[in-house]
Design a protein around this nucleic acid. Structure first.
Length: 379
DNA sequence: CTTTAGCCCTGCAAGC
DNA sequence: TGCTTGCAGGGCTAAA
């Protein structure tokens, strides 16, 4: 289920591998992958072309050729594979039990890029230009682009009566958000997935925008460490389960309030959400009360991020000790390690600062307003 | 114009 | 045990 962060991580890993390379030959091993385009025609037109740019729009991967354009969409579980050469491809691709499933292979002047999707939901297409690809033309504003501002997002919201969940999944409005990250963003913003988009108040729209941007950015970081590995067909994005707060957590307790996460059908898809944090009726009652005491301390919210940083730091240190590490890779790891170390230090200091404030308050005025951890996700 | 239902396809889980 | 059935998933297309 690659969504925008996964596709972005794939594109960033793919770029240095294929950008500037020439397509020697195209093997369409499963013609269904180019449907409804004629596989022979796709192969003929891509052959001999050079890959100028590797890009992403929404969940589409774009290989801009010196003439024409290749698009790939992974849908549910499409993936990319890398083979050293044509011989390795022939030995490993679709060879019975221990073979690797490959739908289309682009044999380059160095290496072979494979596109694979066992379920054949994913597609690879060839177009004369961007304008000829209906899927690309229909895309709305990319959720990772600079143009995705709180202002423009609010305008889009106010133009739709659809439930928030359906709205977020609509690629023609905001491109790149799928089922996982729509659930995560709505959980983070504490908004009811059933609420109609145009009923959000300006501050709620800003909160949702901020949640989307932050959820996608954190997911992208997660997808880049470790980076996608096209050489291993079994490889998949790791650590996402630890990252998820709502999606796929039916029955398990909400990380914010402890209420069991629920699952409901919306537009034929599963929506995971917390009834206590996200239900509109509850929120109205809560905002009516003036001084609702915060139920959870901020340390609890920070903890998973801190632990993740620390775990990653340990991993970086472990890798630095590996003997077969190139100087270049070692420098990159070292830099990442220093940044992580600073981040962890900062979080520790912040936590200490909070403890101090609490102690002073205990000594001083009793009526001091409680620290609201939820304010962190607002404004 | 907007919104919705059905379809594509395979792997896996549940039910018989 | 082995079979059938049903469901999940993203996005396109046709219909409402």
């Amino acid at each position: 289920m690659p969504e925008l962060p996964e596709v972005e991580a794939v594109v960033r890993t793919l770029r240095p591998l294929v950008q500037g390379r020439k397509i020697r030959c195209v093997h369409v091993l499963h013609p269904i992958a180019t449907k409804p385009q004629d596989p022979a025609q796709v192969a003929r037109q891509a052959q001999g072309r050079r890959i100028r740019i590797v890009d992403r729009q929404g969940k589409y991967v774009l290989l801009v050729l010196d003439r024409g354009l290749l698009t790939m969409h992974f849908r549910l579980d499409g993936q990319l594979l890398w083979f050293s050469n044509g011989q390795e491809l022939r030995e490993r691709a679709n060879q019975g039990e221990n073979g690797v499933h490959v739908d289309v292979a682009l044999e380059l002047d160095k290496g072979v890029l494979g596109f694979a999707d066992r379920r054949h939901f994913g597609h690879l297409h060839l177009w004369k230009s961007v304008d000829d690809c209906p899927g690309l033309n229909a895309l709305g504003i990319d959720a990772l682009s600079r143009d995705f501002t709180p202002h423009c997002f609010a305008a889009l919201l106010s133009a739709s009566k659809r439930p928030l969940k359906d709205f977020l999944l609509d690629q023609s409005r905001v491109a790149g958000i799928g089922n996982i990250y729509s659930c995560e963003s709505l959980w983070q913003a504490r908004l009811d997935p059933r609420r109609r988009a145009n009923t959000l108040k300006p501050r709620e729209a800003r909160r949702l925008h901020k949640a989307i941007v932050s959820v996608l950015a954190r997911a992208l970081e997660c997808c880049l460490h470790p980076a996608p590995n096209f050489r291993d067909p079994e490889w998949w994005f790791e650590g996402l389960e630890r990252f998820l707060r709502a999606y796929g957590r039916e029955g398990r307790s909400c990380r914010r309030c402890g209420e069991p996460i629920r699952r409901m059908a919306q537009g034929g898809r599963s929506t995971y959400w917390c009834r206590r944090c996200q239900e509109w009726a509850h929120q109205r009652i809560r905002t009516d009360r003036v001084n609702t005491p915060a139920t959870k301390k901020p340390e609890l919210q920070k903890k998973p991020d801190f632990e993740r940083s620390l775990a990653r730091l340990e991993e970086v240190v472990r890798r630095l000790e590996s003997p077969q590490l190139s100087l270049d890779d070692a420098m990159k790891l070292f830099e990442e390690g220093v940044a992580l170390s600073r981040e962890c230090q900062k979080q520790l200091e912040e936590a200490e600062g909070r403890v101090e404030i609490l102690l002073k308050r205990a000594d001083g005025k009793l009526a001091a307003e409680p620290f609201d951890p939820e304010r962190e996700t607002e404004s």
